[in-house]
Design a protein around this nucleic acid. Structure first.
Lengths: 250, 250
DNA sequence: TGAATTTGGACGAAAATGATTGAAATTTGT
DNA sequence: ACAAATTTCAATCATTTTCGTCCAAATTCA
C-alpha cells in the first residue's frame, strides 16, 4: 500500500471516529506498526492530526464543527434515542436491511465504524449512508414519491437476492391484536419480505405508534422485536406477552 | 503502446484512484518499468501529477480544483443544450432509460408533460425526476458513491426486467477505433446491457469526449447514435462513416 | 543507410518497511 | 498509593522495494 494511500485512509478514519487506535490502522492497511507510527509522526508534523497514547486523534478545530448542527423537536429526539439504541444492536460484520422512513433514517449516523453492509429500499437514505462511508445497496423498483421508498414487483425481486442478519423497520401502527400495520399495501409487502429474509427483525416505534391500526397488515407482533423508549408500564404489559420489547432507558 | 497513449492512461488511472503503483501501470501498459518511470517524471515536470515513492498520486492543489470547476461550469451550457435536444427525441408514451451522470441529469427538466416512464441507475436523478412528476423506476444494486450510480450484479438483474424504447447514456470517451469507453468496468456493463435492452440508443457527448479513450469499453460506435453540439467538421467526418450523429444547431 | 529517439534491462544508491529491543507510559491488582 | 503487569513508544538495524543513471538494443525518421 502506497504512502499517500495510507495517509488518506488514516485521515479518513480520524475524520469519522475522532480517535483511532494504531492497531486498527495496522489491520486496515496491512502495514506494520512501525510504518504506521512513522505515518502518524509525519502527519502530526503536518498538523493533520494529534498523536495520543495508543493512536491518534482529530485536531480540536474540526471537532467543534461537528457538534454544531443539533436540532431538537421533541419527537425527533425521541426517534434519535430509539435509533441510537437500535444501532447499538448491530454487531460488527452484520448485513442489515434498513427500511425506508424517518425512524430508520435516524439510525444512519450511529452506524459509523461498524463495518457493516446495508441494504435499503429508502432512496432518501442513500446519500446519508454514503456520506458515512457505509457500504450500501439499494433495491430496485418503482420510486414512490411520498415516502421515498422503492416498492413494487421489481423491488421484491431485487430484495430476494439478499439475506440479512438483522432488519430494522418502521411501521405506522402497533396493536396487540392486529400486529404491525402500515398505510400502503405495497410497502407492507416489502416489509414482510424483509422480515422473512432476516434472522432477526426489529420494529422502531416511538410512543405515537402504540395501539394504532393502519390499513395494510405487515406481520404479527411476534415476528419482530419492538425497539421503543420509556412508555407507560400498563401499555407495555399488553405487548410484552406477545413479543420481545427492547426499551431504551433514557 | 505510444507515448501519448500511455500518458493518457496514466492520468486516467490517477484521476480514478488518486494513487497508482508503478507496477500496476507496467501491467496495464505492457511497457517496462523504466519507460513508466520516464513517463512519470515527465508528467511531474508538466505538473500533471505528483511522484511518490512506489508510484504517483493526484496533485491536490489549486490546479486540480481549477480544472474541476472549469469543467463543471464551462461545459454546463453545452451539456444543457445537448440535453434539451436529446429530450426532444423522446416521444409521448416512450419508456426510456436514463444513465447515471451529469449529461443525462440535465435532460430531466425537459421531460415534463411527456407522459413517459423513466428507468435509471442514477440515484442522484431520482429526486429531480419525482420533482417533475415523472413516473420513475430505479434499478437496484450497489450504490457507488463517486458517480452516484447503481452498479454490480444486482443492478444487472434488476435492469433485465425492463425493455426500453430509447436509452440515453453518458460516456467518457468516443473514439473512431475504440468506440465508447468509460472509466469503470462495472458501469460499462450496465451501459452495455441498457443498450441491448433498447430499441434505440443515444450517447450524449459534449466536445470534450471526442477522440478520448477511457478504460472500459462500452460498445462500438455503431451501437448508438451520438448526440452532440457543433464541432469541427473534420473531426465529425471520422465518426459520420461509423455511426449516426445528431448535431444540435445551436 | 545513418542519425535520432525511444525503449528495456542492469546495477549501485536511496528510500521505505518490518522486526527487535529497552525505555516510557498506562493499566491493573492489592 | 504503590508496585507489578501490560501496553505503547522511540530508536536501531537488517531486509526489501524502489529510484535514478547508464548503456545497449530496438524503433522511428530522414
Amino acid at each position: 500500500m502506497l504512502t499517500p494511500e495510507r495517509h488518506r485512509l488514516i485521515l479518513q478514519l480520524i475524520k469519522e471516529k475522532s480517535v483511532v487506535k494504531i492497531q486498527e490502522i495496522v489491520e486496515r492497511t496491512g502495514s506494520s506498526e512501525s510504518t504506521i507510527r512513522r505515518d502518524l509522526n509525519q502527519l502530526e508534523q503536518e498538523k493533520q492530526l494529534k498523536r495520543v497514547h495508543g493512536g491518534a486523534a482529530r485536531l480540536q478545530g474540526k471537532l467543534q464543527e461537528m457538534s454544531m448542527v443539533e436540532k431538537s423537536t421533541k419527537n425527533l429526539q425521541e426517534k434519535k434515542q430509539i435509533a441510537k439504541y437500535a444501532a447499538s444492536l448491530i454487531e460488527k460484520g452484520d448485513c442489515i436491511y434498513l427500511d425506508a422512513g424517518s425512524s430508520t433514517y435516524e439510525m444512519i449516523p450511529f452506524l459509523l465504524q461498524k463495518d457493516i453492509v446495508v441494504v435499503t429500499n429508502g432512496f432518501m437514505h442513500i446519500e446519508s449512508l454514503l456520506e458515512n462511508e457505509i457500504t450500501t445497496y439499494l433495491i430496485g423498483g418503482y420510486a414512490k414519491k411520498k415516502t421515498r421508498a422503492m416498492i413494487g414487483r421489481g423491488a421484491l425481486i431485487s430484495l430476494e437476492q439478499y439475506r440479512f442478519d438483522k432488519c430494522f423497520l418502521g411501521v405506522n401502527g402497533i396493536h396487540p391484536e392486529f400486529g404491525y400495520t402500515t398505510p400502503d399495501q405495497e410497502e407492507a409487502l416489502i416489509k414482510q419480505k424483509a422480515i422473512s429474509l432476516s434472522r432477526e427483525a426489529f420494529v422502531l416505534a416511538d410512543s405515537t405508534k402504540f395501539a394504532e391500526v393502519s390499513f395494510a397488515n405487515v406481520a404479527a407482533l411476534n415476528k419482530a422485536t419492538i425497539v421503543t423508549n420509556e412508555i407507560d408500564e400498563e401499555i407495555l404489559k399488553k405487548y410484552k406477552s406477545k413479543t420481545n420489547i427492547k426499551v431504551v432507558t433514557a
